[in-house]
């Protein structure tokens, strides 16, 4: 399979404030990309813009999937086309069982032309598959009966996101700080799970601060984002360098981007106040 997700000159604004200022990125099916960068640099914004969040307004540039321009598509169209994002903070949907949610989601994604009201994947078949995936990811089957993310611990939420990724088997997955809020053991497990489900089976864009999540997922490409732009791209060694030494070198090398980053952070704080 050869699929390509291409981001060209992407500018994104939230509430009228420019965040991304010309991002270029090309990912092929089977590749693993790490996206690193300090707080407020725009990493999550890139993920949400690719996933199609309505508040992340694309003001310039394009996103294409296998040559098709999906810049204007709704989030559900993108999901059905093979784009997936594991949320940093997944929301709870009280009253909706995880299994029911995933069955409907998997049906829609596997049959992109499915019309509303048409049959879902047969219950037995789906249960069997879900059970197998849960055991592969060492998730208690009791999980399936719980309401979507409702009362989940941080670790449970992240594992549920990886389970969802496993059930939807997308062409491209964006993992938005799947390691945040997890202890060392949980990060290890998440890293191994991502490798198990995603490695070579999709394109992975792993957004992270640390290299722990990359332990089982050595990236072919490491991108550094600062001030809403990708300022540097390297291999796995770049991820290690950033983890060991932080972003000081990057900040000094790209003063314009650093200034933009500080400006964005200041605005964020002003809003928070």
């Amino acid at each position: 399979m050869s699929h390509i997700l291409r981001i060209e000159n992407l500018h994104v604004a939230v509430d009228g404030k420019a965040i991304l200022r010309g991002v270029n990125l090309e990912m092929k099916f089977g590749e693993t990309h790490a996206m690193m960068g300090p707080n407020g640099s725009g990493k999550s914004t890139l993920g949400l813009a690719i996933a199609g969040h309505p508040n992340y307004v694309i003001t310039e540039g394009t996103i294409t999937l296998d040559g098709e321009d999906i810049t204007e598509w709704e989030a559900d169209q993108r999901a059905r086309a093979g784009i997936f994002m594991a949320f940093q903070r997944p929301v709870a949907i009280p009253g909706v069982k995880t299994a029911d949610f995933l069955r409907h989601a998997a049906t829609n994604v596997r049959r992109p032309d499915r019309k509303e009201g048409e049959d879902l994947i047969p219950m037995r078949e789906f249960r069997k598959e879900l059970k197998a995936k849960m055991s592969q990811l060492k998730i208690d089957t009791e999980f399936a009966r719980r309401y979507v993310n409702d009362g989940f611990s941080g670790g449970e939420m992240k594992r549920a996101e990886i389970l969802t990724m496993a059930m939807l088997s997308p062409k491209f997955s964006i993992l938005d700080e799947t390691d945040s809020g997890l202890d060392a053991d949980a990060v290890k497990l998440a890293s191994a799970s991502i490798a198990e489900i995603g490695r070579d089976k999709m394109g992975l864009l792993i957004i992270t601060h640390h290299d722990k999540l990359l332990e089982h997922n050595p990236p072919q490409f490491t991108h550094v984002m600062l001030g809403g732009r990708i300022v540097e791209t390297g291999g796995a060694e770049l991820a290690r360098e950033l983890h060991d030494h932080g972003y000081d070198r990057i900040r000094k090398t790209y003063p314009d981007a650093e200034a933009a980053n500080q400006e964005m952070l200041a605005k964020e704080e002003a809003v928070a106040v």
């Binding site: 969040h53 559900d76 059905r80 949907i93 949610f101 409907h104 829609n108």
Partner: peptide, 12 residues
């Protein structure tokens, strides 16, 4: 948005 990003249409 969360449900849409999992393939649900808005009305679904």
């Amino acid at each position: 948005f969360y449900a849409q990003s999992r393939g649900f249409t808005r009305v679904e």
